[in-house]
Write a protein that binds this DNA or RNA. Structure first.
Lengths: 71, 71
DNA sequence: ACATAATGTCTAATTTATAAGACATTTTTA
DNA sequence: TAAAAATGTCTTATAAATTAGACATTATGT
């Protein structure tokens, strides 16, 4: 799996660091780092928490061909 | 967390049993059963696999207020 | 250039998802 | 109504996510 640039972008838009986001969703900084790097298979609950903090949906951050579909 | 009736519904629409779906995505039947029952926190990759088999998106099966939003 | 923050990455320990097997109960079908 | 299939649920074992700590590297700000 490749990098998840969508999380990185959404995080930048909220002016949050990896640690900020990790704290906000209650995981370690390494976990957020690994998720963005792409070699992780996070739980759906963690993905949902990330989405809520960043103001995005699952499709927007974790679905493949999202870019066109959902708002 | 409550039951995931959306998976159950989508599965019924494809006329698949829990075991059929479990086999299709490569997990044990108990895992699918627990996911539908709702006391599981499956990985995002497993969720995506389930979505693909059932012809749905992440938002449709695992996001909360999806019912209105996405097709 | 220096200081500081942010990120990348490694190791070892722990928690949790998932597997495998078995059996009970409910639903479907003949 | 009986048999078979599907589902619910429990126990034990294993694989994988996640944590905590530490240190190197890269970016940011003064």
């Amino acid at each position: 799996m490749g990098k998840n640039l969508r999380i990185k972008t959404a995080r930048a838009a909220k002016d949050m660091t990896q640690k900020d986001l990790a704290d906000a969703v209650g995981v370690a900084r390494q976990t957020m780092n690994a998720i963005e790097k792409g070699d992780y298979n996070p739980s759906i609950n963690l993905c949902i928490a990330i989405c809520k903090v960043l103001g995005k949906t699952l499709n927007q951050l974790f679905w493949e061909d999202d870019e066109y579909e959902n708002q």
